[in-house]
């Protein structure tokens, strides 16, 4: 589904991501884990086209999209749910969902809205409320549901569990699992390495802008170096 080769992301002279290569197989979840500032979000943003890509190749279903505009990538099915529960706070819940489907034919939107509101009942209950008045967990549901409204082929999830209470973190990972089981391809960026590896089939560890370890998720879960650094003791 996604094949990234030698991707470098640079903000002026500062290279946030240096020559990383990875792939995401169709119908699977791959995860990028690593400490704060390692270049995880920069990688996702370069895939979406909102971070400056210096060099490298991004193939989506075999097509090089690295020079495409952001909206063209979204239309092609590469959709990002950004970090920090980024909802349009002043607009209603309903409008946020509608804007998720901005690139899609209007006739299909109504049925998808219905589907999202059935899946996430809170979004139906609060449909006319300003998105900014939702709780943190509700905003994350909205952000994910809005991403799904675009009917993604590849969903980029940036730190979906960040700043949520433990119970909600579990809910978020349940949703990710559910999406995976429905056949959606997902690239997940997480600091919560344990949970991320539990739902993924393949994992990449990124440090200082470089991929340092990669492998099947179950292998990474038992890798001593990863256990020490990212999973903590007693695993």
């Amino acid at each position: 589904m996604l094949e990234v080769t030698d991707l470098t992301v640079a903000y002026g002279p500062i290279e946030a991501v240096r020559s990383v290569s990875f792939t995401v197989q169709a119908g699977t979840v791959a995860t990028l884990i690593g400490p704060n500032g390692a270049g995880k979000s920069s990688t996702l943003n370069a895939l979406s086209g909102v971070a400056p890509q210096r060099c490298g190749r991004i193939l989506l279903e075999g097509q090089d999209i690295s020079r495409w505009s952001v909206h063209r990538r979204v239309a092609a099915g590469l959709v990002q749910v950004p970090e920090g529960r980024l909802v349009l706070a002043g607009m209603s819940v309903r409008e946020n969902l509608e804007l998720g489907a901005y690139r899609r034919p209007r006739t299909e939107v109504a049925a998808d809205l219905e589907r999202m509101e059935v899946r996430f009942p809170i979004l139906r209950e609060r449909r006319n409320a300003a998105a900014g008045t939702l709780s943190g967990g509700e905003q994350q549901m909205l952000a994910i549901a809005r991403g799904l409204m675009a009917r993604p082929k590849l969903l980029l999830l940036d730190e979906p569990s960040l700043g949520l209470a433990p119970l909600l973190v579990r809910t978020v990972f349940e949703i990710v699992t559910e999406l995976r089981n429905s056949g959606l391809t997902i690239l997940l960026v997480e600091q919560n390495a344990r949970q991320a590896l539990n739902v993924s089939s393949f994992g990449y560890v990124i440090e200082n802008g470089k991929i340092v370890i990669e492998g099947p998720a179950d292998k990474l879960r038992s890798d001593p170096a990863i256990i020490r650094t990212y999973l903590g003791q007693g695993v």
Partner: peptide
């Protein structure tokens, strides 16, 4: 209108609007 909503989205958060696929 769809375009009107897009205008409001850009007004509120340009980066987010971009990620939604708004030109």
């Amino acid at each position: 209108s769809r375009t009107g909503k897009a205008i409001r989205a850009v007004a509120e958060n340009e980066r987010m609007a971009r990620l939604l696929g708004i030109h």
